[in-house]
């Protein structure tokens, strides 16, 4: 039956299924489970060794696209070329750094007949780590207190309000936990030397880390919410294994988040739950997490639902999911030939 209708063509980024994986391959597996068998998957890759490029039963064809730093014009020009070859129906971007550009070109894509299902730039900015505290406070949610500082003297004031330990964070990366003023000062100088100003000082929250995969319909409803706890993490802090949880309070804060933001598309809420049951938002990732295939396993296939909504189908919010479903991440060595590597490197297509 499926073969009679035009295949849906879906382009997906984030094919770097390596030790710190991008979500692309997991998204594609979910799409292949949840959509008609004849869908065609177009990989969009930045680097030539992204494993998904070479997995031909996962990705039908891959094209290289410009790095986000090349700008939205370059991205649009490349997507137009790919669209001429492939007649794309839906694009699912999966990297934080590329979202700015994809949001910017989405009206132009729509005019070409390519659908996306993305948050707005305002939604993207509101959940940025710089604005997170203010943002959550506005909606009756909680995030660790933070303060942006430019001088080590300001650490005194932070300690008075937040108490020790403090988390001292660099402008772009790195975080150091400080238990005393001396440690905080040392961290301040170390991080400013490395990343420059400003420094973000954050209240330390002790607790259990919980991640929630959420799909919002853009009108304030959560189509799907799946909470998961990491059972074991790698030395890079990435999930090695995880398990779905049943907890009404987690569903409630995710519902509140989606209602408050009218979030459109997938996202991952990183929550720290304290021993006394309070839930702090640590970070909000504006795209599907790498463990998104677990949502398909648990009965709420978020990527498939996203594609259907992007194509205009009304999807009833999911209510049930399997609790106690686990994922265990594994690696395998895929074998290919140097000619494939040369082809994607030299011609930008494979």
């Amino acid at each position: 039956m499926d073969q009679d209708i035009e295949p849906i063509v879906i382009a997906v980024t984030g094919l770097n299924a390596i030790d710190s994986p991008g979500p692309g391959v997991a998204v594609i597996r979910a799409l292949r489970d949840g959509l008609p068998k004849n869908i065609r998957i177009i990989g969009l890759a930045y680097e030539t060794l992204e494993p998904g490029i070479y997995l031909h039963d996962v990705v039908d064809k891959t094209y290289q696209i410009p790095y986000p730093s090349a700008g939205s014009d370059a991205l649009l020009a490349r997507l137009k070329y790919i669209h001429q070859q492939e007649k794309i129906n839906v694009i699912i971007p999966n990297f934080d750094a590329e979202l700015h550009n994809f949001i910017k070109v989405s009206p132009a894509l729509k005019a070409l007949g390519i659908q996306t299902f993305l948050p707005t730039q305002q939604q993207l900015d509101a959940r940025d780590k710089i604005n997170l505290f203010q943002f959550t406070a506005m909606h009756g949610l909680m995030a660790p207190m933070d303060k942006i500082i430019y001088s080590a003297d300001e650490l005194y004031g932070c300690a008075e309000i937040m108490g020790y330990p403090l988390v001292v964070k660099g402008k772009f990366y790195d975080a150091i936990i400080a238990n005393t003023f001396e440690q905080a000062q040392k961290a301040f100088f170390k991080l400013t030397a490395k990343w420059g100003f400003p420094i973000i000082v954050q209240q330390f929250i002790a607790g259990t880390e919980i991640n929630i995969a959420v799909l919002g319909d853009g009108k304030g409803n959560a189509t799907s919410i799946i909470p998961m706890r990491k059972l074991y993490i790698t030395d890079k802090g990435k999930a090695w294994a995880g398990i779905t949880l049943e907890d009404e309070s987690l569903i409630n804060i995710a519902t509140t988040f989606v209602k408050a933001t009218k979030w459109k598309g997938g996202c991952e809420l990183e929550i720290m739950r304290t021993a006394d049951g309070r839930a702090f938002f640590m970070e909000i990732n504006p795209r599907f997490p790498a463990w998104i295939y677990l949502t398909a396993g648990a009965g709420q296939n978020q990527p498939a639902a996203l594609v259907k909504m992007a194509m205009g189908e009304a999807i009833q919010p999911y209510t049930d999911y399997a609790v106690g479903k686990m994922f265990i991440r594994y690696a395998w060595d895929h074998i290919t030939d140097v000619t494939e590597f040369q082809q994607i490197s030299g011609l930008g297509e494979l």
């Binding site: 930045y46 030539t48 060794l49 790095y67 490197s345």
Partner: peptide, 13 residues
């Protein structure tokens, strides 16, 4: 030389 990332001719400005 073809490297993993450096060769992306669609990627540089």
């Amino acid at each position: 030389k073809m490297n993993a990332g450096l060769m992306n001719k669609y990627g540089t400005r």
